[in-house]
Write a protein that binds this DNA or RNA. Structure first.
Lengths: 262, 262
DNA sequence: CTTGCCCACTCGTCTATACGAGTATGCCTG
DNA sequence: CAGGCATACTCGTATAGACGAGTGGGCAAG
C-alpha cells in the first residue's frame, strides 16, 4: 500500500464539532478547488484515506458521497474516484429559432455542434399520436390528443438533451410534421408553410434534480441537475401551435437570452 | 414499536440484481409519487423500515440518502424523515426590468412578493468598492475596480436569492448608486438619470449544485440545485454598465422569457 | 397548575467486518 | 509472441453494533 504524499491533505481536528466525514470532505474539496487534484485526476483511494486519517472505510465513503452530491467527483467501480471533468458547454442563444436560421434549412443542433467541432447525433426518434397531459393540454388550449415528437440529442456520443414536441392534431396530422424527418428547417419551417406564421415563443425554465428515468436517458452523473425548459410557440393569430418540453443535462448547457430594455 | 401498515410498502425481490437499498428507495419514491405520502408528511422511521424489510439500519439510511439526493425528502434530527414540501415558486417574467415598471418607483422584488401575498425582505446589504474578478472585468470591458452591491432576498423568512451587482467606478462612484438605498426605481433608474439609457440586457443561465457557502446562505435542503444567472445591462452607446450575478434556490423559481420569432 | 426531569423515539456519526464485482497488470502457458 | 489466468487493487453492498444528540410526551415534584 503506497502511503499518501504528506502535505497533500491535512489532519483532522478532534476538538472540532464538525463531523469527521465533513472535515475530510472539506479537505478534499479544498484540494480540488486549489487545483491540487486536476480535472479527471484520481483522488486517493478509500484505503489510502482510511490509512491517512485513521478512520473507518464507511467514514471515508461518507465523505466521498458528500462530494458526489455536490457534483465535484464521481466514482468508477474498480478504478477509483475522480475529479469530475467539466464538459464543454453548449451555449443556446435566444435567437436560435430566428427565421433567418430556419431558412438555411439545417437543424440548429447540427449546425451549432459542427461549428463547435463536435459530433452531433439524434436518436430514439419517436413520432406518435397520444393523449395530451393536463399541462400540455392547458398550454395548447384544451386539446385532447396531440402529435408527440420525441428525440434525444447527443454530442460526441454523450446524451445531453431529451426533448418532446407536442402539436395539436388538427395542425399536424397528415403533414410532414407527422413524419420522422419533417424536412429542411424542421417543424417550425413546416408550420409556417402551413400558414401558421410564428409570432413569438414563451420559454419557462426550471432546474431540479433528475428523476431516475432522466438519469438513465441522459446518463447523468450523480450531483448533476437538469434544466427543464418548456417552450410554447405562438402563431400570428395568437394560437399556441407547439409545446416543446426539453430536459437538458445542466453541466452541458448555458442558456443565453437577449432582452430589450423597453 | 408500532408496525408498519401492511400494503403501504411492498416486499423485496431477492432474485433481483437491483441493490436492496435501491429497491427500498424505489418503493418509497413510488409511494410518494402516488401520493401515499403527501407533502410534509412523515415517512416511516428508520427502525420501522428495518423491521419491515428485515435489513440493517445502514441499508435503510442508504435508501433515504438516495431520495435526499433527488430532493424528494429531507430528514429532521429527532423528528423523522419527511416528504419535502414544494414551496410556492416565484415566476420571473422577462419584462420585469421594463421601463414602465421602473417608473412606478418600487423594487420589483417587493411588488411581486406583495402581489403574491407573501412577506418580502432584503438583508445583508453590502455596498463597497473592490477589485473586479476576471469574469466581471471581461464583461464590463476591462475595468480594474468596481462598485459591488450585495444583497439577499427572503420570502416569508426564507432566503431565496443572493445577488451582487457590479458597476464600473467611473459610472457609480459618488452617485446614489453607491448608497445603500439608491432610491425609487433602483439602480437602473439612477443609471438612466445619469445618461446611460438602457438599451438591452443579456442573461446567461446555468444550473448546478450549490457550494457549501451557498447552502448556508440560502439555507438549502440537500438535493436542491441553484440557478446561476448573470445579467449584463447595456446602455444605448453599447457599453456594459452593470453586471448582476444572481444565485437562486432552484426550488423557489421559474424563469419565464418571451422571445420574438423574427 | 406549573415546572422540570426522565424516557422513548428519532436521526447523526462512527467502527469493524465481510463478501461481491469491475479493472488493470503481470506472469505463465501454449 | 499471444492468449489466458491469477492476483491485487478498486469501489459497491450489506451486516451488526455502539454512542451521541435533538424532540416531544408523560410523570412527578414543587
Amino acid at each position: 500500500m503506497p502511503s499518501l504524499p504528506s502535505g497533500l491533505l491535512g489532519d483532522l481536528d478532534p476538538t472540532s464539532d464538525r463531523a469527521v466525514f465533513r472535515q475530510i470532505a472539506d479537505q478534499l474539496r479544498e484540494a480540488i478547488d486549489r487545483g491540487r487534484f486536476k480535472e479527471g485526476e484520481k483522488l486517493p483511494s478509500e484505503a489510502e484515506l482510511v490509512d491517512h486519517y485513521g478512520v473507518s472505510r464507511m467514514t471515508v465513503r461518507n465523505s466521498f458521497s458528500v462530494l458526489q452530491g455536490e457534483g465535484l467527483v464521481h466514482a468508477e467501480h474498480g478504478k477509483g474516484v475522480f475529479v469530475r471533468p467539466r464538459p464543454p458547454v453548449r451555449r443556446l442563444a435566444s435567437d436560435r429559432f430566428a427565421r433567418r436560421h430556419r431558412e438555411q434549412g439545417k437543424a440548429a443542433f447540427i449546425v451549432e455542434a459542427n461549428a463547435a467541432g463536435s459530433h452531433p447525433q439524434v436518436d430514439s426518434l419517436e413520432v406518435k399520436e397520444e393523449k395530451a397531459s393536463q399541462d400540455v393540454s392547458a398550454r395548447l388550449g384544451s386539446v385532447r390528443r396531440v402529435l408527440a415528437r420525441r428525440r434525444r440529442y447527443l454530442l460526441d456520443g454523450r446524451p445531453v438533451e431529451f426533448a418532446t414536441s407536442y402539436l395539436p392534431l388538427d395542425i399536424a396530422r397528415g403533414t410532414p410534421i407527422a413524419e420522422p424527418n419533417p424536412g429542411p428547417g424542421g417543424i417550425y419551417a413546416r408550420l409556417e408553410e402551413l400558414g401558421h406564421r410564428l409570432d413569438h415563443f414563451e420559454e419557462e425554465i426550471r432546474a431540479r434534480m433528475p428523476s431516475p428515468a432522466e438519469v438513465k436517458t441522459l446518463r447523468l452523473a450523480s450531483g448533476v441537475p437538469v434544466i427543464h425548459l418548456i417552450r410554447t410557440a405562438f402563431d400570428a393569430a395568437g394560437r399556441a401551435v407547439e409545446v416543446c418540453d426539453t430536459v437538458m443535462a445542466a453541466d452541458a448547457y448555458v442558456l443565453s437570452y437577449q432582452l430589450p430594455a423597453t
